[in-house]
């Protein structure tokens, strides 16, 4: 005798009901939680930008952001101007930090589209820093970050994060020992051309004393993540480099 649950009609009914129930639960949750999640993401972006500027609550080894209840005020205080560069156009836009870099990169594949490039101007201790968002691909998924530079294109602060790099290996790009290595590295080579920073495995300078060699020490076992990070620094910051090279000339 055929069991009731083997009938085709039952199978189809079950499938339809399940799709409806699961779809309804997920759609309800996703739309109900979206505003809260969006606020969290915005605050996180502000925290990350401030972190790169050096506004954070780090102690000796930890990575500690400005707390979420203070971040909006601190952001207004330290980030004095947000610019968006699009083609020959430059505009001041207080929501520039919300620009989705992933979308901009994707639309830029269309040659007629002029990409929106955010540039944040931060002032800390009376020093002006240029902060630029970068984004690229690691081993498993996206990696991104914010780079703060002075007018010589020397890194004054950096923040990296990732979506799903291997814990213990590639995931360590958001740890202090890796990020702090970049501070002081100059992104231009000695002749004043843009060079970026290589994440080097055959580094002659593992404790990173030489800041002008355009190299930092790699994380052992995280080759592809490291390559992704140096590729994103190279390709994304190169776009901005003409501004700094121009500054140097004058």
């Amino acid at each position: 005798m055929e069991k009731r649950t083997d009938k085709n009609s039952y199978t189809i009914l079950f499938a339809v009901l399940m799709v409806l129930v699961v779809g309804a639960i997920l759609a309800y949750l996703a739309s109900a939680l979206k505003p809260t999640i969006d606020v969290n993401k915005q605050l996180e972006k502000q925290q990350n930008i401030l972190y790169a500027l050096g506004v954070n609550e780090n102690d000796e080894k930890s990575v500690a952001f400005v707390s979420t209840d203070k971040v909006a005020d601190e952001f207004d205080k330290y980030i004095v101007k947000q610019l968006v560069i699009q083609g020959d156009d430059v505009r001041v836009d207080d929501t520039a930090y919300l620009i989705d870099i992933k979308k901009e990169q994707a639309s830029a594949k269309n040659p007629s589209y002029k990409r929106q490039l955010p540039l944040f101007l931060g002032v800390k201790d009376n020093k002006l820093s240029y902060i630029v968002p970068i984004r690229g691909k690691g081993l498993w998924d996206a990696v991104w970050g914010y780079v703060a530079m002075d007018e010589n294109m020397t890194v004054t602060g950096i923040f990296f994060d990732h979506k799903a790099e291997t814990p213990g290996l590639g995931a360590n790009i958001n740890q202090r020992f890796f990020m702090d290595d970049f501070i002081g590295e100059n992104l231009l080579d000695t002749s004043g051309k843009f060079a970026g920073v290589d994440i080097s495995k055959s580094n002659a300078d593992p404790i990173n004393i030489d800041k002008l060699d355009n190299e930092v020490d790699a994380i052992a076992g995280a080759t592809i993540t490291g390559d992704g990070v140096s590729a994103m620094i190279r390709s994304e910051l190169k776009v901005y480099s003409s501004y700094f090279i121009n500054l140097k000339k004058n």
Binding site: T11, F14, A15
Partner: peptide
């Protein structure tokens, strides 16, 4: 007792994923 055996793998995967 209510999962149809023909589509049980899909049902299981969807339960975990959800």
């Amino acid at each position: 007792n209510i999962i149809p055996s023909k589509i049980r793998i899909i049902v299981q995967l969807i339960v975990v994923a959800t």
